[in-house]
């Protein structure tokens, strides 16, 4: 039981980081139907900038929490700038072009950002200075650290804040209007370009925070970290229903749980020796041996399988209302 609880805690923590990254994908997609392939790289840049700042301030003797906050405060504007320039230079000129064009551009942007980061921060894995003394609490045998608790709290806060922004402010109303129909929104006096730019910028800011959370949780950052994280977060967004903000949150948390529980239990379920009628047929089972079809080595497949299954059987995702009528 403690193992199961532990896996749930692991899944929730990883999942809430996915959720925050997924918000960036889903907001952009919701508004201009673009898969912003480069969003993962924005997250990476957020982590890198925070690393540089925290690393520089760590020996200064400031309280650790202040150092991390300053790091985040530096990462957010940098990422916002990256998000804005991306939209302005690479995507806006292509609005109205065939769907494949911005996607290919996004891949290009992602490659460029990754290798610029490589040139600035080197190829090496950067170890985040471990300044926050992480304390571990045990609940029914399951360990949870202060960092994990903080991550969960921050993620919930961010999601709540975003929901408020989208559903309670003028900008949010403008965003929703633009998502429904940009032309009509324009006629209603909404500056569509500004709203789209704002969406990118907000998504990038969330990405920056996610990058810092990732960095402090795992204690490292690397220029390649964005691509895997981005793909998983994208899968999460699709799972929840892309374009749908609560969906992204739900999808992120679910994907985190699926991965943790999948990696934790798939080996037990695919051990053919536990199925009596099969174990007789397999030599390896003799004397308490095991014949495991698939173990934790398939951990990274889960995200992709979820992605494919959802897209094939329920393209609108779990919470998506707008079914793929935009063929």
């Amino acid at each position: 039981m403690d193992t199961f609880l532990q896996q749930v805690i692991n899944g929730l923590t990883a999942g809430s980081v996915y959720a925050v990254v997924a918000l960036g994908y889903t907001m952009v997609y919701g508004i201009i139907q673009l898969i912003n392939f480069a969003h993962g790289e924005v997250v990476m840049i957020g982590a890198m900038v925070a690393f540089t700042v925290i690393n520089a301030l760590a020996p200064a003797g400031l309280p650790p929490l202040a150092v991390v906050l300053i790091g985040t405060a530096c990462a957010v504007p940098v990422c916002m700038l990256v998000g804005y320039s991306m939209e302005r230079l690479a995507y806006r000129p292509l609005r109205g072009a065939p769907r494949l064009a911005p996607l290919i551009t996004a891949i290009g942007v992602s490659i460029i950002l990754q290798h610029l980061a490589l040139m600035i921060w080197s190829r090496n894995v950067l170890a985040f200075p471990q300044i926050i003394a992480s304390r571990t609490y045990f609940i029914a045998g399951a360990a949870i650290t202060t960092v994990q608790i903080a991550i969960l709290a921050i993620c919930v806060g961010l999601m709540g804040g975003l929901a408020l922004l989208v559903y309670r402010t003028r900008l949010g109303t403008a965003m929703r209007a633009t998502a429904q129909n940009p032309q009509v929104a324009g006629l209603m006096g909404i500056d569509v370009n500004r709203v789209i730019a704002a969406t990118f910028v907000i998504g990038a800011a969330l990405g920056a925070v996610a990058g810092v959370l990732f960095g402090t949780y795992y204690g490292l950052a690397q220029y390649t970290m964005g691509s895997v994280l981005g793909l998983k977060a994208f899968s999460a967004a699709v799972l929840g229903g892309i374009g749908n903000i609560p969906g992204a949150m739900l999808g992120g948390v679910l994907l985190g749980l699926v991965e943790a529980l999948g990696a934790g239990y798939i080996g037990d379920f695919t051990d053919l020796c536990q199925y009596g009628w099969l174990s007789g047929a397999i030599d390896a089972c003799e004397g308490g041996g095991q014949f495991i079809l698939a173990g934790s080595n398939y951990q990274d497949v889960f995200a992709f399988i979820v992605l494919i299954l959802v897209l094939v059987f329920r393209p609108s995702g779990l919470l998506g209302e707008r079914v793929g009528e935009r063929a």
């Binding site: 139907q33 769907r99 494949l100 996607l103 994208f234 897209l311 094939v312 393209p315 793929g324 063929a327």
Partner: peptide
Amino acid sequence: LRGDYLAIV
């Protein structure tokens, strides 16, 4: 699937 979804799949 539409073009961009297909790409991801």
